[in-house]
C-alpha cells in the first residue's frame, strides 16, 4: 500500500512539474520573444517609415505607410553633393583594409602578449588596454594637428590609422583571452617536431584562432563602417575620399529636418553592414560564443 501511494505521489509530482515547466517555459519564451522584438523593432520601423512622405510621418510616426514611396531614396542617390556611390567605394576600401590590419595586428600582438614572456610584455598589454580609455571626441583637435603636421590628413589612407588603432585594444583583449584557452601542449608538440616560431604562429595557431578572428573582423567592420567623428575631422568632405556616414550628413541642413529622409539615409548607411550581419549571423555568433573572452 505504502509503496503504491508513493508511486502515485511521484506520478502526481511529475505531472505538476510538467505543468510548472510548461508555464515557466511559456513565460521564458514570451520574455525572450519580447526582447528580440525590442531589438529588431527600430529596424523594421525605420524601414517602413523611410517609404513614407514627411507629411504622413508627421501625422503619425507609428502607422504603416498608406502609399509607400521610394522618393526619399531616389533623392538621396540623385544628390550630387553627397556622391554616395563614390563614398560607398571609399567606405568599403577603408573598412576592408582596416579590418584586415586589425585582424592581423591583433592576432600577432594578442598571441605574443599571451604566450611569449619578455620584459615589456605586461607594460605593452597595459598600454593597449589603456587605449580603451582614450576619450576620442575631446581629442579630435590634437589628433588633427598631429596628422596635419605630418601631412597625413586628407589622404586615402588617413582613416586607417584611427580605425585600426582604436579597434586594436578590444581585439587584442579578445585574442589574448582566446589564446589563453588553447592548451600550450599544442605549440610544445609543434616545437618538438621542429616547427619554427613563425610556422607555429601561422600554420598551427592561426587556424585554431579562426573563430575569434572572424568575430573581431565583424565587430570592427561595424565600427569602421559607422565611424563619423574621425572622418569629419581628418578628411575634408572631399569627394574623392569621403565616407558614407560623412556623405549622408548632407541630408541634415541647419534649418531643415525631414525624418523619413534621414531614416532612409541611415538605412543606406547601415545596409551593407546589416546585410552582412544577417547573412552571416549564425557564424558571427558562433565565433563570438566559441571565441570570446574566457576571463
Amino acid at each position: 500500500m505504502g509503496s503504491a501511494s508513493g508511486v502515485q505521489a511521484v506520478k502526481k509530482g511529475s505531472g505538476a512539474i510538467r505543468v510548472r515547466d510548461g508555464l515557466l517555459g511559456s513565460v521564458m519564451n514570451i520574455i525572450l520573444a519580447l526582447f528580440s522584438l525590442m531589438c529588431i523593432f527600430p529596424l523594421v520601423w525605420m524601414l517602413y517609415s523611410s517609404v513614407k512622405t514627411k507629411r504622413e510621418f508627421n501625422t503619425s510616426v507609428i502607422s504603416l505607410p498608406s502609399k509607400p514611396t521610394i522618393e526619399n531614396y531616389i533623392k538621396i542617390f540623385a544628390n550630387k553633393d553627397a556622391n554616395l556611390i563614390g563614398a560607398m567605394g571609399n567606405s568599403m576600401r577603408t573598412t576592408l583594409l582596416s579590418v584586415f590590419l586589425i585582424v592581423a595586428f591583433s592576432f600577432i600582438v594578442g598571441y605574443i602578449l599571451s604566450r611569449v614572456s619578455f620584459r615589456l610584455n605586461r607594460p605593452l598589454y597595459v598600454m593597449f588596454l589603456m587605449g580603451m580609455l582614450i576619450p576620442v571626441h575631446s581629442l579630435l583637435v590634437p589628433t588633427y594637428i598631429i596628422f596635419n603636421r605630418t601631412n597625413m590628413a586628407n589622404q586615402w589612407y588617413t582613416l586607417l590609422f584611427p580605425y585600426v588603432a582604436f579597434n586594436l585594444p578590444v581585439a587584442i583583449f579578445l585574442v589574448e583571452g582566446y589564446v589563453k584557452g588553447i592548451p600550450p601542449e599544442l605549440e610544445e608538440a609543434a616545437s618538438i617536431d621542429g616547427c619554427s616560431f613563425n610556422r607555429t604562429l601561422f600554420s598551427i595557431i592561426l587556424p585554431v584562432c579562426r573563430p575569434i578572428l572572424i568575430t573581431i573582423a565583424i565587430i570592427s567592420a561595424f565600427s569602421c563602417w559607422n565611424e563619423f567623428s574621425f572622418a569629419l575631422v581628418l578628411i575634408s568632405n572631399n569627394k574623392a575620399i569621403t565616407t558614407v556616414p560623412l556623405a549622408l550628413k548632407n541630408f541634415t541642413g541647419q534649418f531643415s529636418s525631414d525624418y523619413p529622409k534621414m531614416m532612409a539615409a541611415m538605412l543606406i548607411t547601415m545596409a551593407p553592414i546589416v546585410l552582412l550581419y544577417f547573412i552571416f549571423s549564425k557564424q558571427i555568433i558562433k565565433g563570438m560564443v566559441a571565441g570570446a573572452v574566457k576571463g
Partner: peptide
Amino acid sequence: SKLVKLKSIHRTFGFFPSTISALCV
C-alpha cells in the same frame, strides 16, 4: 534553458543593436 525555443533567432536579434552606430541609436 531547454524549455526555450528559437534560440538562434534570439541570439541573432539580440546582438543586432550593437551593429548600428550610436548616433543612429
